[in-house]
């Protein structure tokens, strides 16, 4: 078991719920989405840049675990989370938005949500944040573009 999993159980503080709802509302207006999209460099500009150095013991193991875990999501969101259907794609969406949504699912603070709260409770907060970062870095629609 990774020691980082324990820290993942910590709450964000009493205001986390309000913060989460605020971000979601802004996202609905498209404000945050557009801002972050323009600030964030495209994910594939530096394909050969070295990975970030390991900062904590177990960091590499944690990253490896997240890489495999993320592949589960493809069964509903398409390979690399890039498929558009009645289920939204994940690839290339801002990490901040996805993190707040995943944590809101986990805390049952997403009215009308269906399966996602049941699934999000299967992961620690830290894992959900890392999964959001994983999908944010993937090119939108990258792997599902139909070949001509």
């Amino acid at each position: 078991m990774n020691t980082q999993n324990q820290t993942g159980k910590k709450r964000n503080g009493p205001d986390a719920g309000i913060w989460v709802r605020m971000v979601i509302m802004l996202a609905a207006l498209g404000v945050v989405v557009l801002t972050i999209r323009t600030l964030r460099p495209p994910a594939d500009t530096e394909p050969d840049s070295p990975p970030a150095p390991a900062t904590a013991p177990g960091a590499e193991e944690f990253a490896a675990k997240i890489e495999v875990m993320a592949q589960s999501c493809a069964a509903c969101h398409g390979t690399d989370g890039a498929l558009h259907t009645s289920i939204p794609p994940l690839a290339g969406k801002p990490a901040l938005i996805m993190q707040s949504q995943l944590l809101a699912f986990r805390e049952d603070q997403m009215p009308g949500a269906t399966v996602m709260p049941r699934l999000a409770r299967g992961y620690t907060e830290e894992e959900l944040r890392a999964l959001a970062r994983h999908f944010a870095e993937l090119p939108p629609g990258g792997t599902t573009r139909s070949t001509p």
């Binding site: 069964a75 509903c76 390979t79 498929l83 259907t85 009645s86 289920i87 269906t114 399966v115």
Partner: peptide, 14 residues
Amino acid sequence: AEFGQGWYAAIAQD
């Protein structure tokens, strides 16, 4: 019901 349709498309693609 709609998500079920989306699921089918996604798992077939994946």
